[in-house]
Write a protein that binds this DNA or RNA. Structure first.
Lengths: 109, 109
DNA sequence: ATCCTGGTTGCTGTTGGAGTTCAACACTAT
DNA sequence: ATAGTGTTGAACTCCAACAGCAACCAGGAT
């Protein structure tokens, strides 16, 4: 799994955009993009959820993937956790192996 | 399901504490407790995660229950979601019926 | 050699809004 | 009347999330 900064840089280059171009599209200064990509942000470890959404839109990338890399829970997942806390507390307590089995069951099921 | 404010008030009264007493224990002004209980917070819909933890400790209550009522994802669940985004994106997309079946499978399985 | 274009980073500055307190008031009950 | 409790609008503090300059480096084109 790449870091948020690495992934952002890859997505940007794949689109052939400069930091300045992406900055303009997302509405932030290009030096801030640089700091994000190099993980040199002063206090916050990651940019705001709003900015992540703007950047994902500009890059035509998967918002939720970027949110997860930035340690933020995407809205649809969050909603479901709040709705079914019983289930998700259980799921969260499972080890990788058991989770994998569940996923397989869902494939065929 | 009660609101966060209602539940907090119930827990506090069950302990026979005044707002001032709880406020002192949790390290905040009692007027803030009042606003939380009556949901009169201007912008923030809920208090910070830190304060919720302090109050839960003072009330000897279940932290995760209060966190969920305050629409915040408890840390252990959040960690697992970040570790296995593939699985939890899938789980979150399931309807109640399918989730129930999964839980049953886990009971016997 | 000089000039773009693109990127990095330290530094200082700005600001919206979350979080909290203050002041004043109201209601009981004793 | 006063002690304890709760409510509420206004005001305050504080900092995360940016802005943005300045100086510097690397590589490529002219």
């Amino acid at each position: 799994m790449p870091t948020f900064g690495q992934r952002l840089r890859d997505l940007r280059k794949a689109k052939g955009l400069s930091q300045r171009a992406l900055g303009d599209m997302a509405g932030v200064n290009f030096t801030y993009i640089s700091k994000i990509e190099n993980e040199k942000l002063d206090f916050a470890q990651f940019p705001s959820e709003q900015l992540i959404r703007s950047m994902a839109a500009a890059l035509e990338a998967d918002v939720d993937e970027l949110l997860l890399l930035a340690q933020k829970i995407p809205e649809p997942i969050k909603r479901r956790v709040i709705e079914r806390p019983d289930a998700f507390r259980k799921f969260a307590s499972l080890d990788d192996e058991t989770i994998n089995k569940l996923l397989e069951d869902l494939e065929d099921g």
